Simulated assay, not measured.
Amino acid sequence: MEQGAARERATGGPSVRFGDPGNGPRDDTREAAPGASPRERCGPPDGAPGASSRERCGPPDDAPGVVRVPEQARGEHTHAETPLPFPGDGPRAVRRHSVRGQILDALRTALVSGELRPGEVYSAPALGERFGVSATPVREAMQRLAVEGAVEVVPNRGFRVVVRTPRELAELAEVRALIEVPVMLRLARTVPAARWAGLRPLAEATGAAAARGDRAHYAETDRAFHRAVLALAGNEQLLAIADDLHRRSQWPLLSAPVPRHADLVADAAEHSALLDALAAQDLPVVEALVREHFTGADGWA
């Protein structure tokens, strides 16, 4: 005990058990029953003869300062589930310090590209196995997607990808036009031409993604372009609402065909044309381009 306490004082804090020294990482969610002996908890001695159980595997689970991995962090295995559509072999590598953010980005990409199919149900544990992480960050990311309207919770099963109808898409386009057209017209009257020139690289990025036929990357670059334009209005609330509407309009339609390559290229070209009209303060062209852009490429604008 005195040696263990001295080691804690030397390291500046309490022991945190995430694995056994000498045997590599272990699953801390599989603990022995309460009251188990040190040998049952830690296995046979592997240290020096006479070493105490605390020296081999750290303090008991109920000791002050010990942090255990929670049970809900373990993803239970599921059966009879829709096969996962992600390409590639083996789990996707995800760095622990930003697991949830990376999983959220990956799921959004899968939604936009159609890898997660509308109407299908996916469980957090199964998706966690695919990404090589526990079910917890997947579940948290899916809850965020539920707030964004991309999935809905199915009790005791997982999350169903929402089926977006053509009517819903038309309604989103109408709301986006009501919000963004007046802002674009005001910006055309007040923003110097040199500021619009600074947004050319963003417009070119959408064009490059469209030329490759990369729908997921096109969706990201398209939102980045629109955010940069609207950010010039200096209204953070407007920016958040417009970006949420934009993202919702990009979720795949169950009945809609995949946007053709030519549609994406034409849609991307409208970004450069819009910058030209904004710099020239050509208000009728600005309004026409923005309205058309919202309904172009089958909702991928």
Rank of each mutant, 00 (worst) to 15 (best):
V154G: 08
V154S: 10
V154A: 09
V154T: 12
V154Q: 12
V154Y: 11
P155F: 05
P155M: 05
P155S: 08
P155L: 06
P155D: 13
N156F: 13
R157A: 15
R157I: 13
G158T: 11
G158C: 12
F159D: 10
F159G: 07
F159Y: 15
R160K: 15
R160D: 15
V161Q: 02
V161T: 02
V162Q: 15
V162P: 11
V163G: 07
V163Y: 05
V163T: 13
R164V: 07
R164Y: 04
T165P: 13
T165L: 11
T165M: 07
T165V: 11
T165D: 12
T165A: 06
P166H: 06
R167E: 12
E168K: 02
E168S: 03
E168C: 01
E168D: 07
L169R: 05
L169G: 03
L169Y: 01
A170L: 13
A170K: 07
A170W: 11
E171G: 01
L172N: 05
L172S: 05
A173V: 13
A173M: 07
E174A: 03
E174Y: 01
V175T: 14
V175S: 10
V175M: 14
V175R: 10
V175E: 15
V175A: 10
R176K: 12
R176E: 02
A177K: 00
L178A: 14
L178H: 14
L178K: 11
L178T: 12
I179T: 14
E180T: 04
E180W: 01
E180L: 01
V181N: 00
V181M: 00
P182M: 05
V183E: 00
V183G: 00
V183D: 00
M184K: 08
M184C: 11
M184E: 09
M184H: 14
M184S: 08
M184P: 10
L185Y: 00
L185A: 02
R186H: 14
R186G: 12
R186I: 06
A188T: 04
A188I: 02
R189W: 05
R189E: 15
T190A: 10
T190F: 04
T190R: 09
V191I: 07
P192R: 03
P192W: 03
P192H: 02
A194K: 09
A194H: 04
R195C: 06
W196A: 06
W196T: 08
W196N: 08
W196Y: 15
A197R: 13
A197H: 11
A197C: 06
A197T: 13
A197S: 08
A197L: 11
G198Y: 05
G198K: 08
G198P: 15
L199A: 06
L199Y: 09
R200Q: 14
